[in-house]
């Protein structure tokens, strides 16, 4: 199946200390990496952080293959960015930019590889709890996030199909006919998902 595990490593059951670490701590790590990406100015620091994160990832027992599966979809884009920035701003800056993106991706994968989706949802529900009094519904908020995460690989897959058929048929074709199927499929998919949720009594507002 296309794109499974795309961008974020899927949960791998295990007992490592990272699996057992509190969710909040793992989230802080991801969040911190996102923040650090503009504080860090030396590519060697970025490289060290990336190496450390990769080391942690391997300690979880999820394996190199999972790690590579998460990074692979970005590899081509990162290469292009790297070469472009190298040409524009020089090698150290280019290395820093690319490494910082990788740091963020690996950190996010570290979280998703060691946390079951249900635990993540519980975490979101708890974090969004205080907003209940403004009329928010944390359960439905968490559910929407889960559906979104599940849909990214599916839709990225349909985009890739479009690109492939564009290559196969050439670009002289009407661009509307080329990309329209992505959106038609996506909307149909969204409705099916909505109907399936409704049928299971999930996702409807509770009064």
């Amino acid at each position: 199946m296309r794109g499974h595990g795309f961008l974020l490593a899927n949960y791998v059951p295990g007992q490592s200390f990272i699996h057992r670490a509190p969710l909040a701590l793992k989230f802080l790590l991801v969040f911190g990496c996102g923040l650090a990406s503009f504080i860090v100015v030396d590519w060697r620091v970025s490289l060290a952080v990336l190496a450390g994160l990769c080391g942690l990832f391997l300690l979880t027992g999820a394996g190199l293959k999972k790690l590579w599966a998460a990074i692979r979809p970005l590899a081509a884009v990162l290469l292009v960015i790297g070469v472009f920035q190298w040409w524009m701003l020089g090698a150290p800056t280019a290395a820093r930019i690319v490494l910082n993106i990788l740091v963020c991706v690996v950190a996010a994968s570290l979280l998703t590889a060691t946390t079951p989706v249900q635990r993540l949802l519980d975490g979101v529900v708890r974090a969004a709890g205080p907003f209940k009094r403004f009329g928010a519904d944390p359960e439905r908020f968490a559910l929407t996030i889960a559906i979104m995460l599940r849909s990214i690989p599916y839709i990225a897959g349909t985009f890739a199909d479009v690109r492939d058929s564009a290559r196969a048929r050439g670009l002289e074709r009407n661009p509307r006919a080329l990309i329209l199927p992505v959106f038609i499929t996506s909307v149909a998919f969204a409705r099916q998902t909505g109907e399936a949720l409704a049928a299971r009594g999930l996702g409807e507002a509770e009064d």
Partner: peptide, 21 residues
Amino acid sequence: NATDLGLIAVFAALVAAAALV
């Protein structure tokens, strides 16, 4: 309702996929 949540989630994913691919 649930269909609205499905549409919101899938369109959010659509924006993400469009940014990445």
